[in-house]
Amino acid sequence: MFKVPPVAAERLPALLRAMPKAELHIHIEGSLEPELIFALAERNSVRLPYASVQELRSAYAFTDLQSFLDIYYAGASVLLHEQDFYDMARAYLARAVADNVVHAEIFFDPQTHTARGVPIETVIMGLHRACEDARTLLGISASLILCFLRHLSEEEAFATLEQALPLQDKFIGVGLDSSELGHPPEKFARVFARCRELGLRRVAHAGEEGPPAYIWSALDVLQVERIDHGVQAFQDAALLQRLASSRVPLTVCPLSNQKLRVFPDLRDHKLRQLLDAGLCATVNSDDPAYFGGYINDNFTQVFAATGMGARHAYELASNSFEASFASAADKRAWQHKLKESFERFVEYD
């Protein structure tokens, strides 16, 4: 077991930024910055209901998940061609590399685009090509996870899955996102069963705005391997015990939770309690263009608010590698880099 050396409080933000990490909860459409939205709108002759980048950014005043989703889908309207999806993903991956992300598992929402007449092949090929180029040119490993929109029907999810299957080698798994309340995981039991048969990895948003019962359903009915968000687990002692013993990971997004008023004050966030209870929690950025921070912003701000220290930092980064769907060899290599980064940081502290 690696003994985490002490780090002075004033040096902790630098350590958080420098340590290698994986990002496992990133919606690629949610990384679309206003500047790129306007550039793509001009390239594709799409008219936006905002006069400027600043006016669009000023509209990012969300009160709940649904108010965010309304503007999120409007921003996605500029994505029409394979190159648009490529440019969006490459911009995120370059930003991730700057934050010392060595591996990213990227969510994408094909139904957001196919509903507008964009072929699913256009979406997947643009994103996949960006991931391949980033591996070669930026040195970051990246994989795709196809997400079903839970406010739509399971029949529509099945149709999306069938459309995507000819390109199954371009994505590693499936997820479940969009409006949580009123759309419990069991609504998608049959399509997730089909995905298990196909050998796809499985994750689902649960327990962000929804109750702990949604986390239980995601585990027992959908048989997911990771819970996205999952912060409401702190309300259920039996669930906490199960998550700790099974090491089913939670992909927690602190700034998203603050922006959507799950925890309006970051000082009240439960990340530290989840870690101290033995859960495999991780830190991620969710929709960073909309929620005001990429992964390092999430780390530095939640640490400043909750008083976590170097031990928590190491656990979170280590958990991110453990929770990933990468190969065992890659996980070992990243864990080794993590230990080296801590030792090197303390040596020069």
Rank of each mutant, 00 (worst) to 15 (best):
Q241D: 15
M308P: 03
L279Y: 11
R261Q: 15
T63H: 14
E186V: 09
G175S: 10
R226Q: 05
Y314W: 14
H336Q: 15
R242I: 00
H312V: 06
K187C: 11
L255R: 06
F325W: 15
D286W: 04
L24K: 07
D286A: 11
E105Q: 12
K337G: 04
C253P: 10
F299E: 03
P13V: 02
S67M: 08
T282M: 04
Q241P: 00
R272T: 02
V78D: 13
G207P: 04
T112S: 10
Q168R: 15
S58G: 13
R95T: 06
Q232A: 11
F107R: 08
I106T: 06
E155M: 06
L239M: 08
E121H: 00
F188S: 10
S178K: 00
S45N: 14
S153I: 03
G30Q: 01
Y290A: 11
L138D: 08
A244G: 12
T136L: 12
Y348S: 11
R201S: 13
Y50I: 09
V248E: 08
E121R: 03
A304R: 09
R11E: 11
A304Q: 15
V221K: 13
A94W: 02
V346K: 14
S327H: 09
K21R: 13
Y294G: 12
F158I: 05
Y73W: 10
P110C: 05
